[in-house]
């Protein structure tokens, strides 16, 4: 069986790649996908620790994270569409004014 540490290492690497995506990319959609990648990495760590402790609570928490992530994606993409309608761009550098 694979030790828990390997999963945690993979999770840390995936999370850092997600952070890199948020910091480097300017396309709001790709930034959003990077956020999803980070959530996913956290989920992986949760499940790995759940097996380590033989506790199902970790899996329940991942279930909640996935559900809330679905809601977050729906609202976030709706916001992106609304921003795109008024600004004609999905570049995060262009959207620097609070006024709609």
């Amino acid at each position: 069986m694979v030790p828990t540490a390997y999963y945690i290492l993979l999770s840390a690497a995936l999370f850092a790649i997600g952070v890199l995506g948020v910091l480097v990319r300017r396309n709001a959609l790709v930034v959003f996908m990077s956020v999803e990648l980070m959530l996913n990495a956290a989920n992986l760590a949760f499940v790995a620790f759940a097996r380590e402790r033989l506790s199902v609570d970790g899996q329940v928490l991942v279930f909640f994270v996935i559900t809330v992530a679905a809601a977050e994606v729906a609202v976030g993409l709706a916001l992106l569409v609304a921003i795109f309608r008024s600004k004609r761009t999905a570049d995060v550098d262009e959207v620097s004014v609070l006024k709609g």
Binding site: M1, P3, T4, A5, I8, L9, S11, A12, A13, F15, A16, I17, V19, L20, L23, V24, R51, E52, L54
Partner: peptide
């Protein structure tokens, strides 16, 4: 951004290495 991301990756992986168990799980 790339520099900070790489630093975060190194720190996170080092922490994971130090803190987690390499023993086979139950």
């Amino acid at each position: 951004g790339i520099g900070l991301g790489v630093v975060l990756m190194l720190v996170a992986m080092a922490t994971a290495l130090r803190a987690s168990a390499f023993a086979p799980p139950p």
